[in-house]
Nucleic acid binder design. Structure first.
Lengths: 172, 172
DNA sequence: CAATAACCAAGTAAATCAGTCAAGTATCTG
DNA sequence: CAGATACTTGACTGATTTACTTGGTTATTG
């Protein structure tokens, strides 16, 4: 299982992009300033994200990045997959040779867990995240701090009743 | 998120204990031999597991470890919690000060993910794992390789219809 | 009392991560 | 077309963490 700040930063940055990309490209410098992520590190991450087809870039003055698709068609699992190796929790990366060529006792269990996590991440889109009240509140504060700019949230995306993404879990 | 070989080893070792603990204590040397985990490392892990109340120990010759409770009352989440710090996926360990004292844009999302994973792990008991056909097959092979011993599976625990632990995931 | 097995405390090599640096290339504005 | 802007690429590094070892102590059985 690889869920580190790399994946977290990527999701945060892309979400920032989704929030501010309403009109034209967003520069990494802007994202860096708002989200407190170092610029060169963002460059590294966005290189992978572009190659994975999550974002597209515009060069030259006034350039920057934009989402490659609608926010409702980009899922968190894609973003994490693009920058991290995987969300696999088995030791053998699913190969089944965990114990000297043999399958270890708990292999199938970790496979189930991985599937579980992946299923969750595949079910949450950027649009779902934007719809959260919490996200919009924080984004608004960040915009205010930055330049007094109004938050550029494409209101068409903020559906009602989606405030907290909740997916049914197993018996408690 | 801390899900490394430490947690995996702990679950595997405890499962081995559950499978072989039918009659009296099981020594770490036995588990080490069957599961290919270094003995001193097992000692480290079982120290934590004992302090967490998951297993109890008997010292001296013929001593070893046993489950502190019935296999149906010990859940994977406990085992991982005992050896790893947590299964939290937020950067700030849930404190909400991810971005220089402020809450970062994606904080609530990682909280949800953490809850999701924890819910899954809390819903799977050792008895559930023992009931898996896969686990019993592998355990049988391991026993045969070792000493030609018969697998000591407490048959009372192997309920039917539980072969694959499946917990309902969100919409795909 | 001797063998056994749990218990305990440091210490260490390797791997990984987060982040940096430097040099380069494409694109736009004036 | 010239300069500035901004993305692109790839190698590099310090710090942290992990997995595992060493060496010893304490309790219990026969």
């Amino acid at each position: 299982m690889q869920l580190t700040t790399k994946g977290r930063y990527a999701v945060t940055a892309i979400l920032d992009l989704a929030l501010h990309g309403g009109e034209g490209p967003v520069s990494l410098a802007d994202i860096s300033g708002r989200q407190d992520i170092s610029l060169p590190y963002l460059e590294q991450l966005f290189g992978k994200l572009r190659r994975a087809g999550v974002v597209n870039s515009v060069r030259g003055p006034g350039g920057g990045y934009g989402l490659a698709r609608d926010a409702s068609a980009i899922f968190v699992a894609e973003i994490i997959g693009a920058v991290d190796e995987s969300v696999d929790t088995t030791r053998c990366q699913g190969a089944g040779d965990c114990q000297g060529g043999e399958t270890c006792l708990t292999h199938s269990f970790w496979e189930d867990l991985s599937e579980q996590i992946l299923g969750f991440l595949q079910g949450v889109s950027l649009a779902d995240l934007i719809a959260r009240r919490e996200v919009r509140r924080i984004a608004g504060e960040q915009d205010r701090k930055q330049h007094g700019k109004a938050p550029r949230i494409p209101l068409a995306m903020t559906g009602a009743g989606l405030d907290e993404t909740r997916i049914s879990a197993g018996a408690p």
